[in-house]
């Protein structure tokens, strides 16, 4: 006998089969797009931190060199750092050593399996403490760097001022200043965590009506950055 329930079930089976394939495809796109974003952001943030690190390390070396060569009569003797500078260097390097090299803000907990039946199974548990810390840490590092520059009598340019694009080159004079010039963009706090609604949700929803197989919609956004 024909049972209407079978038909309902059948529809669900078709849907599920499609969902499973779509999920795998979407997952691949999410990984690809996420990686591209993460690479850029990681590079941007760590180029800035790395700059401070190299800067501080070099000054510390000069200072230690000066101490060890005090009687040698070499040119290093001309570099004498004030105790304040030395203290700034120590603090700066100490702060930098705390800066995370992995994104600390996001912990994803998937709803039991790798293939949830709907997106509400996705819970993000941001760790508010660590997120706050990173933001504060970055500010501390920047302030300490500026203070160090001031104590050394070296000009420091404000990070996050003019350059909006990581690829934009600064004018040649800028090489005089100890500034990470390509890191113009001031990292936003939210940058560490992808807001799915903003990043891809809109894209996919608008396109899903007319395209059965959505393309790599999100990746296009990377090009426009």
């Amino acid at each position: 006998m024909f049972d209407i329930q079978d038909l309902v079930h059948l529809e669900q089976d078709f849907f599920d089969a499609g969902y499973k394939d779509g999920y795998a495809h979407g997952r691949l796109h999410g990984l690809i797009e996420g990686r591209a974003l993460g690479r850029e952001k990681g590079f941007e943030i760590w180029e800035e931190i790395g700059f401070y690190e190299g800067f501080a390390l070099t000054w510390r070396n000069m200072y230690e060199n000066t101490l060890s060569k005090e009687d040698d009569g070499e040119k290093m003797q001309t570099v004498s750092l004030s105790p304040i500078s030395v203290s700034h260097i120590r603090h700066l390097l100490q702060l930098i050593s705390q800066f995370p090299k992995v994104n600390p803000t996001s912990v994803l907990i998937r709803g039991g399996s790798d293939m949830p039946t709907d997106s509400s199974n996705l819970h993000r548990t941001p760790q508010p403490d660590s997120e706050l810390d990173v933001s504060a840490l970055l500010n501390n590092i920047r302030s300490r760097y500026k203070a160090l520059c001031a104590s050394l009598g070296v000009r420091a340019r404000v990070v996050g001022s003019s350059v909006a694009n990581t690829d934009v080159k600064v004018e040649e004079d800028a090489s005089d200043h100890p500034v990470p010039s390509r890191i113009g963009k001031k990292p936003k706090r939210t940058v560490w965590k992808i807001n799915i609604g903003d990043e891809i949700g809109n894209d996919t929803h608008t396109s899903s009506d007319d395209i059965a197989v959505p393309g790599i919609g999100g990746l296009m956004r990377l090009r426009t950055n």
């Binding site: 849907f15 499973k20 394939d21 795998a24 999410g30 990686r35 990681g42 997106s119 929803h205 999100g218």
Partner: peptide, 27 residues
């Protein structure tokens, strides 16, 4: 189903990809 799946799959893996790219290449 495919349309819904692709959206869900993407949302669910975007952060994972981001963290990977950040830690392994970018930083």
């Amino acid at each position: 189903g495919y349309r819904e799946g692709i959206t869900a799959g993407k949302e669910n893996s975007l952060q994972e990809g981001f963290d990977e790219g950040f830690a392994i290449v970018g930083a």
